[in-house]
């Protein structure tokens, strides 16, 4: 049972890992993007739209386009969301919290609108649409997963998007520490005036970080639909995973490599109620709260310890305007 639980925890954690890696990149540039839940939702629905029209128009569904089309649609959708956020907060210097929350509402609305439309087009009996073929391609596990017992189940049974999430997190983590761009990006989030004086184009960094971050986060939405939900889209099915991803950023102390483990812990806590016998509906909800409680505890812990590097980028949430001092 433990193996199964851990495997489910990992699968539950992957969307959170995508979301938090994307948000960490964004926040490292000083942009607090609370639109992540909406962006992940848009990433999911855009993938669904791509998959739906490919499945319904192509005579033969081939694996490569079946994966690439949804992937591309998802990336473009979340990129657009990132661009909206950057334009509003960086160019127009709108309040980041308000913009982010608006994007979440907007993204959820967009997702439900197109989701509902597709359900209608598909003339589905249930309030959901299913893309089994596409999902099967997405969920192809490594070939020897089934043969190696618990080891295979625990480490090899996932789809390529799951491994990609971990690899992206590791790369981003390395990128922060060991490249010029990473150093400059961190400087922008910590002290944009200093970065500006050092000749770093603050706005360009903010734009790029937010857009790339959004695209990565959007993949979390795609993974959720195509892998976790077996290609079934139902409106509002994504739940509060977007907020969990943002909580995970704090939990991981803005470090993508920490967030790999954090995502598994969060995933595990999120589904733990399934593995505890004899609990009612109300107690279930208490269990679902656990990730947030843990995040609050981490926040308290780092605040008490008061070490500056684990409290997040210093200029997080502030717009930068050179002439303002």
């Amino acid at each position: 049972m433990w193996i199964a639980f851990l495997q489910r925890a990992v699968m539950q954690g992957i969307p959170l890992l995508y979301g938090s890696t994307g948000e960490i990149i964004t926040e490292r540039s000083g942009n607090l993007n609370l639109g992540i839940p909406g962006i992940m939702y848009v990433g999911g629905i855009c993938g669904v739209i791509g998959a739906f029209f490919y499945e319904s128009s192509a005579a033969v569904i081939r694996p490569l386009p079946a994966i690439l089309i949804p992937l591309l649609c998802s990336l473009v959708g979340s990129l657009l969301m990132g661009l909206i956020y950057s334009f509003l907060t960086v160019t127009l210097r709108a309040n980041q919290n308000v913009t982010g929350l608006a994007l979440t509402t907007f993204g959820t609305g967009i997702g439900n609108f197109f989701g509902g439309s597709l359900i209608k087009i598909a003339k589905s009996d249930m309030p959901s649409i299913t893309m089994t073929t596409t999902s099967n391609y997405f969920r192809t596990a490594l070939p020897f997963a089934g043969k190696l017992g618990w080891f295979g189940q625990l480490f090899l049974s996932y789809s390529f998007l799951a491994y990609a999430a971990v690899i992206i997190a590791i790369i981003v983590s390395y990128f922060f520490r060991h490249t010029w761009t990473g150093l400059h990006l961190r400087a922008v989030g910590e002290n944009p005036a200093t970065a500006d004086a050092a000749g770093i184009n603050v706005n360009r960094y903010k734009y790029r970080a937010t857009c790339i971050g959004s695209m990565i986060a959007g993949l979390g939405g795609l993974y959720y639909v195509m892998d976790y939900a077996n290609g079934v889209w139902s409106n509002d099915g994504f739940g509060d995973r977007g907020w969990l991803a943002i909580a995970l950023v704090i939990f991981a102390l803005w470090r993508p490599n920490f967030s790999i483990f954090g995502s598994i812990i969060f995933g595990g806590l999120f589904i733990a109620y399934n593995y505890v016998s004899n609990i009612g509906m109300s107690t279930q909800e208490l269990f679902k709260m656990a990730p947030y409680v843990v995040t609050v505890l981490v926040l308290i812990f780092v605040s008490v310890r008061n070490k500056k590097d684990s409290l997040g980028p210093a200029a997080l949430g502030q717009s930068y305007f050179r002439e303002e001092r």
Binding site: R186, E190, N191, T194, A198, K308, A314
Partner: peptide
């Protein structure tokens, strides 16, 4: 007079 330094670096 006012240093331009990133604190956590």
């Amino acid at each position: 007079q006012h240093f331009k330094l990133v604190d956590v670096f």
